[in-house]
Amino acid sequence: MTDQPNQHPGINISHARPEDGRHTEVTVFGFWTFLMSDAIIFALLFATYATMVNRTAGGPTAAELFDITNAFIETIVLLASSFTFGMGAVALKEGRVGGVRLWLVVSLVLGLVFIGLELREFAGLAARGATAQASGFLSSFYVLLSTHGLHVLFGCLWIVVMLAQISVFGLNRQVRSRILRLGLFWHFLDLVWIVIFTVVYLPAVAT
């Protein structure tokens, strides 16, 4: 197509890389649409958590259980991984393969550390009898957090696949576009975590 209709502000990169523009225009917009759908899933899980937070069925309450220190470390780790991914995006823009690889690996490690911290927290809670089966409150807590955690795990797998694709293909158009979408996904998970921190952990400390 010679002319470029139907561009949306904010998500087109035609000015910087005209040859990538048409491709990313469609795929990145599609990925945003998917993220909106995913965001609704999280919104509904947040709403569910909000209605269940006091349904402890005589079991432990949020104030008794949650440890803000651990959640704070998790937050820092995840935010740092967003930063390192951003550094990877800069390297991608400048076409430095080594830089992209390095920052993807660092983000991957931080993502895995986050999952490890989350699993440690779950194990600690379960040891105190606070399992997902203990009450409606804990069911909604575990499901909200593991849905986010599984997303992070999926993101880690995606990073591994992208590292492999960089080795096989180099930074070709497909790979660049996929790393761009992976970045959207990764930052989206950060955003969700910040809401989790605000909705789940902070009120538990405040009371």
Binding site: T48, R55, A132, G136
Partner: peptide, 23 residues
């Protein structure tokens, strides 16, 4: 969530354990 109740014994919509069918 209904599946999690059924498969993993959670309490989203059960009568007992703090479930809430209206959700």
């Amino acid at each position: 969530l209904l599946g999690l109740d059924r498969y993993l014994g959670m309490h989203f919509f059960t009568n007992d354990g703090g479930g809430n069918v209206m959700n």
